Amino acid sequence: MRRFFVWSALAAVIGLAVAIGGFWAYHHFYARFQPVTVERNQKPIQDLLEQSSWISAGGGGEPLYIIGYRDSAAMQRYEREEVPKLRAAGVEARIILFARPDREGLAQSTAAERATVAELWLTRDWTLYQRWTATPVRNWTAAGIPAADGNLARGAVVEAGRNFIASLSEKLREEGLQTRYPLVIWRDREGFMKACACSDSRSWAFIRDDLDAPDRIDAPEIAPGDPAAPGVYPGDGSPETLPYPNLPAPADGSVPAPAPGTAPVAPRPATPPVPRKAPEPKQTEDTTFF
């Protein structure tokens, strides 16, 4: 009987350890990357998103909001790798940028960044956003853009962006979401609002599943002879549009390489050189020249 109790206690301890380990693995590798479903603050969050100055490349599909700041490497990677997949599913990506406030006396944004954020909030210029994100941060000077520092109106726009992100983060914390960037907010197929602190790429698959976006986009197949094929030059195939002209054969009879799309040039028959006439002597008073 004593041995039975010992083995029973050992089995209970092992079972408890397996259960704890399984729960930890589930949370660590899966559950913590799941988005949260917004239940209490759907309308306030939707109002905040619609009142903000988001920018978009267009498309008119189901909106998906991406919120972050310019220096966020995770946000840049999400835009580069995931947004094309979402667009392939008919989703319109709407981007909201803000300039981070100072933290413990240290500036987390530059004057050029604050000026550009203010300009984007005022103009919603997608071309400006593309130029900004295509330029390394250290090289971006915001040339031609009015400064936000020292400008009451533009400074207020920068501050409005910071107030927006503070209000949004507070309402998402009430839903159980810890703020990390990029913040991604969308509605699933049933119309429920969901939010994700998508700083880890392992959380991106949940968004694709909700929006029926592909896991990858294959490069389009290019038929041989297509103008986009490597080594093929645009044109209609006429001699004027070929990359190489039809040159005459060299005088020595060698055969040049034929131009692409043309028939080989037949070699010229070799001809013996014409002998030169010997010079006739010319004599002056004291010298004879040849």
Rank of each mutant, 00 (worst) to 15 (best):
P272L: 14
V83Q: 10
G261M: 07
E81A: 08
F23D: 11
D125G: 03
G176A: 11
V117F: 03
V83M: 15
A251Q: 14
G150W: 00
A263D: 15
Q51I: 01
I67L: 09
L168V: 01
E50I: 12
V255H: 07
L211H: 08
G261A: 02
R70W: 13
S52P: 04
A11C: 08
E119T: 03
P44G: 02
G15L: 06
V137E: 15
N41F: 00
N163G: 06
E62R: 15
S254P: 05
L49C: 04
Q108R: 14
N139Y: 10
I165R: 03
R189F: 05
L152N: 10
V6Y: 14
E104I: 03
K171P: 02
R276G: 11
W54Q: 02
V13D: 12
P250W: 11
R180N: 15
L122C: 02
V38D: 00
A148W: 05
A112E: 11
D47A: 13
G150H: 07
W7Y: 15
A134P: 05
P281R: 09
F29L: 14
P260Q: 05
R103I: 07
E82C: 05
V117W: 01
Q130G: 06
F206L: 04
A166M: 13
A270I: 11
F5E: 08
Q108Y: 05
A112Y: 13
G15V: 00
R87W: 05
A73H: 10
E190F: 08
P248H: 04
L86V: 01
V117L: 04
A195F: 10
P146S: 07
D286K: 14
W204Y: 12
E113G: 06
E119G: 01
E170S: 14
A147H: 03
A263N: 06
P267W: 08
I96T: 02
T241C: 08
S56Q: 00
L122I: 10
W7R: 15
K171E: 14
D47R: 12
W24C: 11
Q130Y: 01
S109R: 12
P84A: 07
M75V: 04
E280F: 10
G60Q: 09
V91P: 10
P84N: 06
F5G: 12
P279C: 02
D209M: 08
F206W: 13
I207K: 10
P44M: 11
A57P: 15
F23A: 15
G58R: 05
D236M: 04
L97N: 07
L172R: 13
G231H: 08
V184S: 03
S109D: 09
L152Y: 00
P269H: 02
P146F: 03
A142Q: 07
V184G: 09
P264F: 01
T110D: 03
A266N: 09
V184N: 11
I217L: 15
P224W: 06
